[in-house]
Amino acid sequence: MADLSVTAGAMTGPRGQKPKRALSPTNIMLYGTLIVIAVYYLIPLYVMVVTSLKGMPEIRMGNIFSPPMEITFQPWVKAWSEACTGINCDGLSRGFMNSVYITVPSVIISIAIASVNGYALANWKFKGSEAFFTILILGAFIPFQVMIYPIAILLGSVGLFGSLTGLVLVHTIFGMPILTLLFRNYFSSMPEELFKAARVDGAGFWSIYFRIMLPMSMPIFVVAVILQVTGIWNDFLFGVIYSSNELYPMTVQLNNIVNSVQGVKEYNVNMAATLLTGLVPLIIYFISGKLFVRGIAAGAVKG
């Protein structure tokens, strides 16, 4: 009897892959929320792009959402090479180069030092290394504002105040806690036996770092680069305090263009200048984001 009913159920009941409904309540909720959030984030960007492509007469008509009737790239040209800050009228281009001179060495030096720090703290534990690490991490939680004045005095006393070198030094030091934490945790998660095997094979501190650890840690280096490039490129506070008029980074110059009080407010130029300033971190993110995913995938197959 029982056997029969089971057989009957098996003949008529569900069979094979369970059907999936595209418009299930879960999907509607999920995609609905995602779309709302995406729109919320994209509208300001849309307004900026559209406004930067309009002429001033069109902007004065007041409809910020309407697409440009006549596309003009003049505001972009002006923002890059003609906009005035104080007496200089060469636009953002000067600030762009300053930002490059600040960001490139800061990123390279801070990552180079922090990765060795992290490697040493993860694999070559010494007496007091944990205490040292704790103190370093504490640094990540101290508000920058507290340290601004002491650093200004320090830089002044070694003659680096208002120079690019000084600013690079400040960025390198301030990146240290979080980057060290990042690298230490990554190196700690690598199999310890690999490190042991290398030691049995007679490799020393630097040999293990360069030959074993470095080739295996591309993903974390990419993460560090993204973190540092965005952080340092977007920095305003240190740039405005520790550099001088000629050496202002792009962000400071952007502020000066947008906030200049003389003449008419050129919204289209301001928008174009802002987009230009944000372009570098965006590009870095798109390029290295891809590398980042590839790095993770490569790690996954190693098994």
Binding site: P191, E193, L194, A197, A198, R211
Partner: peptide, 8 residues
């Protein structure tokens, strides 16, 4: 080693 520990 148990995990082979080959340099990948």
């Amino acid at each position: 080693f148990q995990s082979y520990a080959l340099y990948p």
